[in-house]
Amino acid sequence: MKHLIIVSVILLAAMQLAHAASGRIFVTNERSNDISVINGSSLEVERTIEVGDRPRGIGISPDGAELYIAVSEENVIAVIDLETLELLRKFQAGSDPETFAVHPNGNIYISNEDDAKASVYNPKTGEQLAEIEVGLEPEGVAISPDGKHVIVTSESTNMLHVIQVPEHTIVANILVGARPRAATFTNDGAIAYSTSEISGEVKKVDMSTFEVVAVRKIADEKAKPKDVILNKDETKLYVAGGRSNQVIVMDADQMEVIKGIPVGKRVWGLAMTKDGSKVFSTDGVSGTVSVIDTGKDEVIKTIEVGKFPWGVVIDD
């Protein structure tokens, strides 16, 4: 009993430190210049927050206290308090910030689409810590769970640039199919998966050799893969199929397509709940978010949000 109390106290303290997660789902709406806040239990939009011109990338601080939004046309990152949902501040984030990822150390890595650069910011102070030259139209940013590697995809140069942290040097430039959009890592950081929009491919990269070890071209010609995430036990990949209007489920090992889950039109963004039970997709042209039950791999709800939903993140 005594132990239980101590454990409880420690857990409570840890929860307070990490800020209680609300379970809310946050969605950037590229053309209505706002974000939709979806209640994690009712799966209804509970609030809409205006954030500025062309919000796209979205992420949460490691301590769960702050929400970050790339407001592309204003060249800033907007910071929202996750508890009060008030806008706390905006800071300059280079030219045309599009996508970013939050490092376990709290810094954010941003692709600056106009500038052929990736930049590193401390979101607490707004200070730029580093700038790294990458290929043209940098887009997707993914960080390995151990924080040692950052992948930036450059859409026009068709490369995955692997940046080593903390040195911020490029250790590999991996040529992939036309218009690489997004990447994700396995939990141990050994493998990265990446999508190429125009070539319609998903690639598997061995992060010890930086070599592409497997490629799967999605048969559906309309499939323009964008976001990619792994399920909780890392057996399945969920790939946003763009104009194929499907979330494509693949087995993570062989990358065979298991299923196409019909969602709304032009699906781009994906996020999974921490317990792995649900995946949320942003269906840009339809203006909806689809909720997928990962047990059945079926849509269980479609939620109307703003215009051209782009990115999605879950506070859980």
Partner: peptide, 10 residues
């Protein structure tokens, strides 16, 4: 110009 942005890596 853009080819050289790629070429610098290759």
């Amino acid at each position: 110009h853009e080819a050289n942005l790629q070429g610098r890596f290759l």
